[in-house]
Design a protein around this nucleic acid. Structure first.
Lengths: 341, 341
DNA sequence: CTGAAAGCGCTTACAG
DNA sequence: CTGAAAGCGCTTACAG
C-alpha cells in the first residue's frame, strides 16, 4: 500500500494539518518540524494523491485561451477542439474560457491579456503576436503567478512559459525537401505564398524553406513571397497573378492559410495540375486537394493535440507536477493522400 | 455547482446507498425506486465524479501488456515506454505487468493469455499473432469481462476489443508514393525487405506498397520480397545478396525491423548511396541513417503514444466512459531528416 | 506554531 | 429491498 498523510503524520509525530502545511509549503511551521515531516516523507517514499487533494480542495482549474478571430481555418479548428475539451472539462475540474481577438493585432491581444484577473484565473494559453505591449502583459501575468503557455505561435522574448507548437523553421525545411525531391532535377522557379511577413511562423517557415532550396536544390530558385493575408480572395488573386506572370514556375509552397483561394487559382488552368504544390494545415479543402492530386503534400500540426497538450501542461504547472515531454511535443506531420487520418 | 449524489438522493427521496446502487446498476433495487432515482439523475443532469468514486473504491486498474521478446528494436522501444508509464502509474491508480513472449509464436502467446487471472486483471493489451489458439484465449478473456486492446498488430478475427496501431496497408501506400516520387521518372527495380511474410503488418504493408507502385509508377517494378527475420545479421546478408544480384535496383523498401543490417549492407558500397531507401520505425540507427542521407524517409508509429493510448482506452472501457477518438488515433508518421522530433 | 474535527463526492460493510 | 454511518486521501476553518 502507498503511504498516506496519516502514515507521514504518525511517522513524524505531528498532526495531519501540519503534514499538510509542509506538503503545501505554507508558512508558519517551525523549521525543526518541517525537517521532521520532510524526513518522514522521504523515508516512507510518500507521494501525494493529487486527485484526492483536488477533491478536498474543490479545486477548479480556471484557464483562459486567447486565439485569433477571423476566417483562418486553422484557428477555427483550434476553437472547435477547445469546444470539445470544454464538453468534458467538468470531469477534469477544469473551466475554460475562450477569448477571441483580431488577428495580427498586438494592441488588441495586449488588452485581452490585461483583462485577465489573476485572482480567479490560474493559467492562460495564447496564440502570441509579438509586441512590447504583449510582452509586458505576459510578464504581468507571470509576476502574479498565472501560468502561461504560448500556442502555435511563440513569443521568444517572453521566456517564462511553455511553447506548444511546432518548430516552424524545421517545418519550412521539411516542405523544401519534399518540394525538391518531388520536382526532381529539372530547373524552375518556386512560388512562395504567405499570409503576412509580419507573423513569426510564416517568416520562420520561409527561412527554413529557402535554406534548404538554396543549399540542396540549385536547379530551383525561390520567387519573392506573395502575401495572401490568410484570406481566400486575396490569396486567389495573388497566386493567379504570380502564376500568369512567371511561366517557369514548377512548384508552389503556401506557408500560410488561404488554401481555398489557392485551390481556386490552381483550378483555373489545367496546366497547373503539373505543378508540385505543398501547403500547410489539414482542412476539408486541403484534404480534397490532396485526394484530387492538386496538392502533393500537406504539412500539419494537430490542433486537438495542441489544445489538450496546453491544458495538460497548464494543469501540471499549477499542480507543480512533471510534464511528459514525449506526450507534449507537437510533431511536424507530413500528409500525402495515402496517410490521411 | 455540479449536482452530487447527495442532491440526487434528496431529489429522489432515497438514501445515498440506494443512489449508489442505481448508479452502479447493482441488483436488488425495486424497479420503481430505480425509476425515481434515474428521473432525478436526468432532471439534475448529474454526472458521476470518477476520481471521487475511484478514491472511495480504492480502485486500482490492473493491466497486463504482452509484447514480443527478442531484438526487434521497435518492441524494445514499446517496452521502454511501458517502463516510463509504470513509473507514473501509482499516480493513476494503475498497476501494469509486462509479459514478454517469443516473437511470431502463437502457442506461446496463447499460453500467456491463458495464464491471466480474470479475477484480478481487468484489462489486457497484446501485440497479436494470429492463430486459433490466440483467438480462443482472447475470447475467453472477453467472456470473463477482461477488456482487451490489440497493440501494433491487430487480430481482426477477434472483434471484441480496440485496436491501437496504424493501418498498415495505408502505411505501405505512403511508402510507395514517397518512393515513386523520390525516384522520379527513370525506370528501375525496387527491392522489398520484410521480417517475415507470416506477420500481418508486413503482409499488409507490402500489399499497400505494391498497389501504388503498380497503379501509379509503371516505370518501377517490385522484386520478390526478401525476408530478414527482423534480425540484423540475416537482413544484412539478404539485402547484400539482393543488391549484388540485381544491378537495376533504384530503390529499397524495408517494411520490417532489422534496419541495422540494412544500413550495414548499404554502407558496403558507395554506389548504394544513390538508392532511394525507405524504412519503418524511428530508432537511433534509422535516425542516423536519415541524417547521413542513407535513408530518404522513415515511416513511424509513436510507441509512447501507443502505450499511453492503450492504457487510456483500457481505463475508459473499465470505467464505461467515452474515448476521445482524435486523441487515440495513431498516425502514420513520415520523417525526413528535416522534421525529426 | 500546532492539532482535532469536519468535509470534498463517492462507496461499502452492516443492520434491519 | 433500503438506510445510517464510516471511510477513501486529502484540505480547511477554527480553536488554542
Amino acid at each position: 500500500m502507498r503511504p498516506t498523510v496519516h502514515d507521514v503524520a504518525e511517522a513524524a509525530g505531528v498532526s495531519l494539518a501540519t503534514v499538510d502545511r509542509v506538503l503545501n509549503r505554507r508558512a508558519g511551521v517551525r523549521s525543526t518540524t518541517v525537517a521532521k515531516v520532510e524526513a518522514a516523507i522521504s523515508r516512507l517514499g510518500y507521494v501525494r494523491d493529487i486527485s484526492a487533494a483536488n477533491l478536498a480542495k474543490q479545486r477548479i482549474y480556471r484557464l483562459v485561451f486567447i486565439i485569433p478571430d477571423g476566417s483562418n481555418s486553422f484557428m477555427r479548428r483550434l476553437e472547435n477542439e477547445l469546444e470539445q475539451v470544454k464538453l468534458r472539462s467538468a470531469l477534469n475540474r477544469t473551466d475554460i474560457t475562450v477569448l477571441k481577438v483580431p488577428a495580427f493585432d498586438g494592441a488588441a491581444l495586449a488588452r485581452a491579456l490585461e483583462s485577465i484577473d489573476s485572482k480567479t484565473i490560474s493559467g492562460v494559453a495564447v496564440v502570441a503576436t509579438e509586441s512590447p505591449m504583449v510582452r509586458e502583459a505576459l510578464a504581468r501575468l507571470h509576476r502574479e503567478n498565472v501560468h502561461v503557455v504560448t500556442l502555435v505561435s511563440d513569443a521568444p522574448a517572453f521566456k517564462r512559459g511553455d511553447y506548444v507548437g511546432v518548430n516552424n523553421v524545421a517545418a519550412g525545411r521539411t516542405a523544401a525537401t519534399l518540394m525538391g525531391r518531388f520536382v526532381g532535377r529539372r530547373p524552375g522557379k518556386l512560388a512562395l505564398v504567405a499570409g503576412s511577413m509580419l507573423v513569426r511562423d510564416h517568416v520562420e517557415r520561409r527561412m527554413g524553406f529557402e535554406q534548404v532550396i538554396t543549399a540542396e536544390f540549385p536547379n530551383l530558385t525561390c520567387l519573392p513571397v506573395v502575401e495572401g493575408r490568410d484570406d481566400a480572395a486575396t490569396a486567389r488573386e495573388a497566386v493567379a497573378a504570380c502564376l500568369s506572370r512567371e511561366p517557369e514556375i514548377v512548384g508552389l509552397y503556401n506557408m500560410g492559410a488561404g488554401n481555398r483561394g489557392l485551390i481556386d487559382a490552381l483550378s483555373a488552368d489545367r496546366a497547373y495540375a503539373e505543378l508540385t504544390v505543398i501547403a500547410h494545415e489539414l482542412s476539408d479543402h486541403s484534404r480534397r486537394a490532396l485526394r484530387d492530386g492538386l496538392f502533393d503534400a500537406v504539412i500539419n500540426q494537430d490542433a486537438g493535440h495542441e489544445v489538450r497538450s496546453a491544458v495538460r501542461i497548464l494543469q501540471a504547472r499549477i499542480d507543480g507536477t512533471a510534464v511528459i515531454d514525449g506526450q507534449e511535443s507537437i510533431r511536424i506531420e507530413i500528409y500525402l493522400r495515402d496517410n490521411l487520418p
